[in-house]
Design a protein around this nucleic acid. Structure first.
Lengths: 192, 192
DNA sequence: TGTAGCATGTAAGCCGTTACATGATTGA
DNA sequence: TCAATCATGTAACGGCTTACATGCTACA
């Protein structure tokens, strides 16, 4: 229709389609969905970005918007996948290659020059990272438990959540090991 | 000097300072350093970005550039930390908070809607991810081994590398578990 | 009455990648 | 002489965040 090779969707657009595959939603609800799920292993797009993507997807015909009365008098703009949107989702899953996972640890960057830092500060940074992950684990566990074992459509989401829990567990163990290694190292150099 | 609150350095600028802490280098060499180390747990900035950052850091006085003859007649621009650069690095380590690790798994995004995809394709995606990590592990191991146990200045780098190896090992185990869970799930639904 | 949550957007700017452009040196 | 590597940049574009701007509704 539009001519030329379809200008591949960006990652956020794909994420929006994925979220809409779980049912229609307003931009605001979509943001909440993202914060409950995608945030743990993908991204938590800003509201402004979500609305932007939804506008573009609507213009492209992959998503349809309609207005619904909610509460008193307020009109909410509700988005849903169109048939074209479903097709694009299927095409994406079947044809596009999976980009590599990206991982960016600011803690690791600092540790590269750990010899220039106060050892106590370094250990505190490691502890902070561990606490962050621990808190994320708690939050993800609540989400996974909230999914309930009944709904079969959420089976894949639950599986991803379980994977995430395992990931967080391992990450904490890695940080514990790392902390021990740092302690050993700084004791060694204090001694010398 | 410049007045106003120092306009915090970006992540790539910090990475450049960290790399230069291991000794002076040309932009080209810095890129190689990044590809050997930072790439595994932080980022592999494009050359163009590196040159851009080096220019800005030089203008800011954190880095000094000088020209050196290398090979025949060729002048290479070599960058080194200035005293100010060292100070900024120390300030960064002592004062700035550590941003959270970012993690973005396109595989996980797809698995959220696994029920819309061909199961064989899903398993192939998992296998592809595992192979990618496996290859990264091999590359990182070569780098860590190449560091040699002698140089004490590289001790922290070696520690980060060891952490990375552990991370890759765990990631592969997570993917193996995930694969089993997917196999169980698709067999279950084929049966019904 | 006021505050938290619902709801929707625009504008500016940074960060980062890809594509483009150029040219010297080394070794097979 | 040809290819790989060394070496340095500019331009355009896209993705994403932050800040700004606005207003309604439910509930305590």
């Amino acid at each position: 229709m539009t001519g030329g090779p379809r200008p591949k969707l960006g990652a956020t657009a794909q994420a929006a389609l994925v979220l809409l595959a779980f049912g229609e939603a307003s931009g605001y609800e979509l943001k909440q969905r993202a914060d409950n799920t995608l945030r743990f292993f993908f991204a938590a797009p800003a509201m402004s970005q979500l609305y932007g993507e939804l506008g573009r997807l609507t213009a492209a015909g992959l998503v349809a918007d309609r207005f619904e009365r909610r509460g008193g008098d307020r009109a909410t703009r509700v988005f849903a996948l169109t048939r074209e949107g479903h097709t694009e989702l299927a095409r994406w899953l079947a044809e596009d290659t999976v980009p590599a996972t990206t991982f960016k640890s600011h803690l690791a960057l600092r540790l590269m020059v750990g010899h220039l830092a106060d050892p106590r500060r370094v250990l505190a940074d490691v502890d902070g990272e561990r606490q962050r992950i621990s808190a994320e684990r708690v939050a993800l566990l609540a989400v996974v438990d909230g999914l309930g074992p009944d709904d079969p459509m959420l089976g894949w989401a639950r599986m991803v959540g379980t994977w995430g829990l395992r990931y967080f567990d391992d990450s904490m163990r890695q940080l514990d090991e790392l902390r021990s290694a740092i302690e050993a190292k700084v004791e060694g150099s204090e001694r010398s």
